[in-house]
Nucleic acid binder design. Structure first.
Lengths: 185, 185
DNA sequence: TAATTTTGTGACTGATTAGTCAGTCTTAAA
DNA sequence: TTTAAGACTGACTAATCAGTCACAAAATTA
């Protein structure tokens, strides 16, 4: 792995474990096996590194979801995205936590709002298609997306807290409930 | 207001604005109008202050919800809790943000798990009653609470991002959707 | 009022931090 | 093999930090 990505991976793990300011740049460099100064060749400031980790993680999740080839109606595609998101988060718990931590931190304001919106654009389009084809209730698109997205991450949290539960069953049951909530009867 | 609470209020605002480690204890003391050393008379360490802010805010919200006198079936009480939570968060946005920030930070691990659970106990009991009286689907109680809770905070976020929307309407519509999702048909 | 206790003060400190820079090492082209 | 450019190094620094402490002020009791 190239040094830049290795620094990002190391920073991710330490930031999740110790928080942003609880993690010294020197510690990141050391654990990544490079010199202190090398870190600052790849990232001008610590803040730039914090942002870079977020962009990397968000991009990874977006790419993973975009790679899904599920066809069919809005419901089928939405189920695939829901299930895919949850499984990805459970497979990469630190990355899931980083997203949550970054979103609820003041650093989120450093992200370009338009760029943030680009990440969710495919989801918004899917909702829009659902409404257009009269599969989904004619609600505000952002509202439907918010319900979809919060439930997705909420179920991830539930499955992290309740390891024993049958994942597949929970995912399927809760998706059906979510769908019943937004579909036109 | 007594000094301790004033320090908590000041710390809350600064932590939300600048993050935990982005806020120096000296700055908190200064903005609260007390000497540096006074802060450490009320809180032995910065960490203790961070926890105290969380306990204070969580307690405030819990007390506000406990004060609700709504009677009737599980649905009516649940609607009151849903609506009450959302309105309280919108009225105290910084406190809402602090809760989110604290929950997604590593500091959450410093909180006693049993104490955390005590905060949500009334909600769990309400869900349990709903299931017992066959109003709510016989799902895992924690799962139902997770769905309820994530949607509550999700709608708060939506209403913060979309100030123009009619709050009352959004709250009522989304509660009905949530209820339809968990109720027995 | 005087004595005692409680509360508040802010200059100070040792430790830690993000970021720098003068110089070394690696790579690959000439 | 020589040379040049870029990658890498880590000791260093100026700034900042959490927390202390000797003392002062205020409140309480006698």
């Amino acid at each position: 792995m190239d040094k830049r990505n290795h620094l990002i991976e190391t920073a991710l793990a330490l930031f999740v474990e110790n928080g942003f300011h609880g993690t010294a740049t020197a510690r990141i460099a050391k654990e990544a096996g490079v010199a202190n100064g090398t870190l600052f060749q790849y990232f001008k400031t610590k803040e730039e590194l914090i942002l870079a980790v977020f962009v990397s993680v968000k991009g990874e999740l977006a790419a993973f979801l975009a790679a899904d080839k599920t066809t069919g109606g809005v419901k089928e595609v939405m189920m695939a995205q829901y299930s895919g998101s949850i499984k990805w988060c459970l497979k990469h718990v630190a990355k899931y936590r980083y997203i949550q931590q970054f979103y609820s931190s003041p650093y989120i304001h450093l992200m370009d709002q338009a760029e943030l919106r680009r990440y969710i654009e495919p989801h918004l389009q899917l909702v829009e298609e659902g409404i257009r084809t009269k599969a989904i209730k004619a609600l505000d698109i952002d509202l439907v997306y918010q319900l979809f997205s919060t439930q997705t991450f909420g179920i991830v949290q539930y499955l992290i807290n309740n390891k024993g539960k049958k994942q597949k069953e929970v995912i399927e049951t809760t998706f059906q409930m979510l769908w019943d909530m937004i579909k036109i009867k």
